[in-house]
Amino acid sequence: MIDFSPFNEYTDSEPANSYHQILSHPIHENGVIELGLFSHHRLAFYYWAKWKLEFLKDRKTYNLDLISFDWHQDLVYPCDYDKKNLSKLDLENLFEISFYSAYKLNPLNHDHIMSAVYLDLINDVWVLCRQGTLEDEYLEDFKGKKHTIRKFKTEQELKKALFKSKIENVFFDIDLDYFTLTNNLDVSKKISYMKDKDVKEAISLDNELIKWIFNRVNGITLALEPEYTGGISKSLKYLSIIEKSWFNKSLGNWNVGWKHKKEN
């Protein structure tokens, strides 16, 4: 039997090799959000669960859609065995969620999104990806609620669909391998990348899609995934582009602020 109680009140529950930054809201003056940064994409599950739990403390219901930029779809459904384990997960215990994220979810990073959907941590899913077919999918969660999973190959297609929706709150998720055109999934091909100027435009605060997302964002997750970006240095390059586009300082500093808000 694993003891998931903390060593003391100061013990951090975050999974190993992950980091969070508290930020002012990028749009709303009095809001605060967190950004979670980690190597393996599956660790996003911990942050989605943590943030959903925080939101529900003073709300009876709170739907949060997920918008994910990823080369892969990462939309594997939890099997019956996984559903049984997920149903037993104590969502009040961040240490248990941390352990589950790191050591019980699929290490190939395929089922973290649908596992979160199954527990209704996420309402509907919108994935901008380069892999797989684009048909809508559906998942019934452990309480019988139906969720829709939508996939898009271009930013314009995603923007058109989102702008027609009535979504009010989202988590924004970026796997940095999204900025590759071909990656290590096919070892016979050399890794190729988006042009830097295209990366900057895709995540720019002047981009209408990013503005729309940030107006509704309640948490941001960034996955380095160096195995699929061509190595750690490549992941850090794209992280640096995001930092320089969004923030006045590198993540990990005190008082990191949004560049467009001219925060100190």
Rank of each mutant, 00 (worst) to 15 (best):
K164L: 10
D175A: 04
I242Q: 03
I97G: 00
I191V: 13
N8V: 11
D90W: 08
I232Y: 12
L89A: 04
K57T: 09
K83Q: 08
D12E: 12
H28P: 15
N253R: 12
E29Q: 14
F179L: 05
K160G: 09
G144Y: 06
L64C: 05
W246L: 01
H260K: 09
D206N: 14
F142W: 11
D3V: 12
M1G: 14
Y100W: 07
E243K: 04
N183T: 04
N169M: 06
S233K: 15
I149A: 03
S39E: 13
K234L: 09
S204R: 04
L209S: 01
V170P: 00
K153M: 11
I210T: 03
E34T: 13
T221H: 04
L222E: 00
N169D: 11
S68K: 08
N264V: 15
R216T: 05
T221D: 06
L181C: 10
K146H: 11
F172V: 01
N169P: 09
F171L: 08
L209Q: 01
K88N: 12
I113K: 01
Y47E: 10
I27G: 02
Q131M: 13
K164V: 10
L56F: 09
W212P: 02
N17Q: 13
E137I: 05
N30G: 11
S13K: 07
K244G: 09
F95K: 04
E157W: 09
L64P: 03
I242A: 03
S204L: 05
N123I: 06
P26T: 06
L108R: 14
N255L: 13
T229K: 00
E157T: 13
P15E: 04
K259M: 07
F4S: 03
S5I: 12
I210M: 05
L176D: 01
S24K: 12
R42Y: 05
E155Y: 10
T133F: 15
P15C: 05
S204T: 07
G231V: 08
L119T: 03
D177N: 05
S101Q: 02
K237E: 10
S188V: 11
A102L: 08
A16K: 15
R130Q: 14
L105N: 00
N8I: 10
M194R: 07
K261W: 06
I22L: 13
K153C: 10
L134V: 10
F152D: 00
D82V: 09
L134G: 10
A49N: 04
L37Y: 01
K159P: 07
K190A: 13
V117K: 01
T154A: 06
N93W: 02
F179M: 02
P107H: 08
E96F: 02
G257D: 02
D136S: 12
L209N: 01
D70Q: 05
F4W: 06
D82M: 12
K84G: 15
I241C: 09
V117Y: 00
L56W: 08
I241R: 08
L239K: 04
N184H: 13
L94F: 09
S101G: 05
L251W: 00
E243R: 05
T133P: 06
T221N: 07
D111F: 03
K52C: 05
K195Y: 15
W48Y: 09
